[in-house]
């Protein structure tokens, strides 16, 4: 089975430990939500998967097409080329490049460069707005448009798994709805595998088939909606750290 597996992951910055014994998995075509309020390690976890933060213990394995790749040994750009894309917090677009140049930049990575024109067509069909604004500088677009561009950029790398870090941050509620709708659309039509970190948890849980709750760097809940109902009050209490399991 194709999946991303995280086993007993410990990570942090210098002597500050942020993640403790994190175990989780994301299977092909799944939409998994990573829930937790600010400062509980969601971004650290995604940045560790992508190689920006070095694990201090444990393993991050990409089991795909009969191959097992140990991501902890790779540099961030190599991890992207192994098929793990990140839509980073704060979007991290190249401000002085146009919309199209931002897309082409990602599309020209070794993994995807043979499919660059097909990927670009797909992005423009999925997000017609980006096609309209292809010659516009990325920095001059609104926050919501930039978020869509960041998602399209991740698609340009032909990902197996897409990690999305807090797409709602800094956006007006109506725009957040549009961004989530775009993500849902991609997931259902393309069967894209997604791990999305989010603190506005009701919306995120609504989209996801499974969810993990991260509190103080520990996974305190793993929820599978196929087998259990979600009690929103219980979930909120867990996320706020009102109870410890």
């Amino acid at each position: 089975m194709n999946r991303l597996v995280i086993e007993n992951l410990n990570a942090g910055y210098g002597s500050v430990a942020v993640l403790h014994d994190v175990c989780m998995e994301v299977r092909e075509s799944e939409f998994v939500a990573l829930l937790g309020t600010n400062g509980n390690g969601k971004s650290t976890l995604l940045n560790t998967i992508l190689g920006f933060v070095r694990p201090q213990g444990g393993r991050i394995l990409l089991d795909w097409d009969g191959q097992t790749i140990d991501l902890a040994r790779l540099q961030p750009h190599e991890i992207v080329n192994a098929g793990v894309a990140l839509v980073p917090e704060g979007r991290r677009l190249v401000p002085n490049l146009t919309v199209e140049e931002n897309l082409i930049l990602a599309g020209s990575c070794p993994r995807a460069k043979d499919q660059i024109s097909r990927n670009l067509d797909f992005c423009y069909t999925t997000f017609p707005l980006l096609k309209e604004r292809r010659a516009q500088q990325a920095s001059t677009m609104s926050g919501g448009q930039q978020q869509l561009l960041a998602i399209a950029r991740a698609l340009m790398t032909s990902p197996r798994i897409m990690l999305i870090d807090e797409p709602s941050v800094g956006l007006a509620p109506i725009v957040v709805g549009q961004v989530f709708e775009a993500v849902r659309e991609l997931q259902t039509t393309q069967k894209l595998t997604i791990l999305m970190a989010e603190q506005s948890f009701f919306q995120a849980v609504d989209l996801a088939s499974r969810a993990y709750v991260l509190s103080h760097g520990h996974i305190i809940r793993a929820i599978d909606r196929a087998v259990e109902q979600i009690d929103p009050e219980d979930l909120r209490a867990a996320m706020m750290g009102l109870e410890h399991s």
């Binding site: 992508l50 190689g51 920006f52 540099q75 961030p76 750009h77 992207v80 080329n81 894309a85 990140l86 980073p88 991290r92 677009l93 190249v94 930049l105 990602a106 020209s108 990575c109 070794p110 993994r111 995807a112 950029r153 991740a154 340009m156 790398t157």
Partner: peptide, 8 residues
């Protein structure tokens, strides 16, 4: 980092 995220 934008370059790394782009696989370059």
């Amino acid at each position: 980092r934008a370059l790394s995220v782009s696989g370059i």
